[in-house]
Nucleic acid binder design. Structure first.
Lengths: 232, 232
DNA sequence: GCAAAATGTTACATTTTTATTAAATCTTGT
DNA sequence: ACAAGATTTAATAAAAATGTAACATTTTGC
């Protein structure tokens, strides 16, 4: 892997310089921004890690982090929050938006470097084993699991083979659990604009899915005159 | 909202008891489990919050938390991790799997309670404003509930099967409660432009609904010469 | 209070909707 | 082109919903 690039965002210039020097000394490439706005003019995607001060004037560090986490291109870049505020709520809020660590001021340089290394090590591992395009893309209701990535369905641990339409139908129902979906909705979502099929086709697929997922079959409910739904 | 229920999972019995006493003193209902396995025999969905010791023998707290977060039925229940291990990696790992806070031992009871309150306050807010998809999709009059999404009617908690026309008729009446609706209005709203049916048909459906919703049947009032309405 | 009108109730016929099964058609990989 | 599996249709059974008629009861206007 190439040299890791780190972006430091803090409005205290001296602190930035000190961090830059020390991190470069550890073999990282370091860029600096004195505000969130300035940082956002850069191509964020080139960095492996962002050190972000939560207490800045213009756009708060929190807001910036949220923007980065909202964009798929930058969502996976780890962020370490630095903050002088030590209230627990701030800390937790930061972590909820995807910060991978936080450091409270006053902190030692040695401390910062240790955390940087730790986070980079962790995210590198993630990318290798823990995250092969893994995005929580799994639906689970008790013992019924749908792996949306591998298109796999397991019932209490044992695999159940669902055909494509069956899988998509069940996925649609579960991801809208608690709502009754009309046949029209089901057709437009599962069968798309493709061929037009009869409503009976849905019923047949409902029957098959029900029988395949065992106990959980009864979670699929029929509301005569309305459509089908998945029990919440 | 009813009393908040909290589940404490820790293998130190004395600690559990102390937590239980103190939390109950704050007005919470508290249950205890001495292991993750024991905890999993309970109906987790009834709790508003889980205090989970990360360091337990059988199934680690981490594993239990992961299971809970994977199941849609329990995924939204906040978890506070308690741990004696203070390495940052453990902490971050915990937060990554969806723990809503963490507390490191040794901690004071006062501290725990403060965090419990903080987390409950935060998640309560979440439920109110954070869920845009969830609008007013339910009509409720005392113990009579109409889930407009799931097309489900419950009377004091027990489901009552309403046929489509019955459901829509009741929905119409309740959503205009306090007003008397003429048969003409009812026909145009519930029966739409469909076939023209006799006025007797409405009466019959009124009767059916009345008898199905038990006590609340008398909430549907008749104004001779005008129509029907739902008591406000 | 009485007759007329309006509404309530019940049982039953009819229609709609859903479930199930088997067979026909389409796909896909070999 | 064949075989295996997926998907749709068709046919039928089963279940549920709905409407109507006939009659009972209540309400209304006098």
């Amino acid at each position: 892997m190439a040299v890791e690039r780190i972006l430091v965002v803090d409005d205290e210039e001296t602190l930035c310089e000190v961090l830059k020097l020390n991190l470069e000394n550890e073999g990282y490439d370091v860029d600096i921004a004195f505000s969130a706005e300035q940082a956002l003019t850069l191509d964020i995607t080139q960095y492996s890690l962002i050190l972000l001060d939560i207490m800045m004037g213009d756009i708060s560090g929190v807001k910036m982090a949220k923007m980065l986490k909202a964009d798929v291109n930058t969502a996976d870049i780890p962020i370490i929050f630095c903050t002088a505020r030590d209230t627990e709520d701030d800390m937790v809020m930061g972590l909820n938006i995807g910060a991978d660590d936080y450091i409270m001021k006053p902190y030692t340089i040695r401390n910062v470097i240790a955390r940087v290394k730790s986070v980079l090590r962790r995210t590198r591992n993630h990318k290798m084993c823990d995250t092969p395009a893994e995005k929580q893309n799994t639906l689970q209701v008790e013992g019924l699991k749908l792996d949306l990535e591998f298109k796999r369905c397991t019932v209490d641990g044992v695999e159940v083979k669902l055909a494509r339409k069956e899988f998509e139908l069940l996925t649609y129902l579960i991801s809208h659990r608690g709502k009754i979906l009309s046949r029209e909705q089901i057709l437009s979502k599962v069968w798309k604009e493709e061929v037009v099929v009869l409503d009976r086709t849905i019923d047949v697929n409902i029957t098959r899915v029900r029988s395949k997922i065992g106990t959980y079959g009864s979670y699929i409910v029929t509301r005569s005159g309305f459509g089908y739904g998945f029990r919440d």
